[in-house]
Simulated assay, not measured.
Amino acid sequence: MGFDVYERQSLIRLRLRLVRIGDAPPFSASDRQRLEGLIPLMDNALTLYSAYTHNRFIEQLYEELLGSMDIACIIMNARLEVLSANRQASEILAARDGVLLRHNVLACAESADQQKLEEQCRNVLDAVQGEQGPPAARTLTVQRTGLDAKWNVQVRSVEKKNVTFGEGGPELVLLLRGPVRDCVPSQARLMDLFGVTPAEAKLVAHLVDGQTLTAAAKALGISRNTARGQLASVFTKTGVNRQNQLVRLVSGAVAAHWD
């Protein structure tokens, strides 16, 4: 005795079988009736599980995509409390590079930027509550710490189709991006754009971040001669012959990618 439950969207099938062994009496009509009562419950459970796994897959896919594009992503509630952050965002927050955490609440280092951030977040939330067309989005710039550069920031509402979160649930998504010199490109992006090796990509990332060859070699735990050899190989692959030319080339290529 048993039943199958099938979820069409995910193609997941749940099978339940009950058997009696030995001299046990056969299943009665009341046994079958009780088992039938489980079917709608199992059907609902399978639907919820399918929706959860699908949403987790999409969430991980977007996180990997944003990471490969060097976009920092922060998910917040209406009080600007940070619920999650991808690797790029976590590094920026830890470095307190223009944005930081104060008791797990997102804040800007500059008071003027803080006012802009709070205002734009309120605008996004008001637009959603006013049903002015989901998802709402606003943009602003945030001054980076110790640099003559700014983050380009976009605040978006969390699209919640047929989903209701309790108080403190996700309401806002904040995306940060900047010029390559200000936001170091990922190793995968450098390998894809210029055909460099993983080791060469790590070196280029440090150079684009403004480090000298000696400082980059020390940070990577390699000798300066090894770093010079890797840099020479990068020059050959990119067609430049000076470090400042390489930085400009990488900056221009990744900036074009952002646009």
Rank of each mutant, 00 (worst) to 15 (best):
G2N: 09
G2R: 02
Q9F: 08
I12C: 11
I21T: 10
D23R: 01
D23T: 10
A24M: 12
A24C: 06
A24N: 05
P26G: 09
D31Q: 02
D31H: 12
Q33G: 09
E36A: 11
E36H: 10
P40T: 06
M42A: 15
L46I: 08
H54E: 14
H54G: 09
N55A: 15
E59W: 09
E64D: 14
I71E: 09
A72K: 06
C73A: 13
A78Y: 06
V82N: 07
N86P: 04
Q88V: 12
S90H: 09
E91F: 05
A94P: 00
R96A: 11
L101S: 05
A107F: 06
Q115M: 10
K116P: 05
E119M: 13
C121I: 07
C121S: 15
N123K: 13
P134Q: 10
A136W: 02
A137W: 05
T141K: 15
T141F: 06
V142R: 07
G146Y: 01
G146V: 00
W151T: 04
Q154D: 02
V155H: 03
R156Y: 04
S157K: 05
S157W: 00
S157V: 02
K161G: 05
V163H: 07
G166P: 03
G169H: 07
P170S: 06
P170A: 10
L172T: 06
P179G: 01
P185L: 07
R189A: 13
R189T: 03
D192F: 11
T197C: 04
A199E: 10
V204I: 15
A205C: 07
H206P: 01
H206W: 00
L220Q: 06
N225M: 09
T226S: 14
R228T: 14
G229W: 03
Q230L: 14
L231E: 06
V234K: 12
R242W: 02
Q243V: 15
N244H: 13
L246P: 06
V247A: 03
L249K: 14
A255E: 14
A255C: 04
A256Q: 13
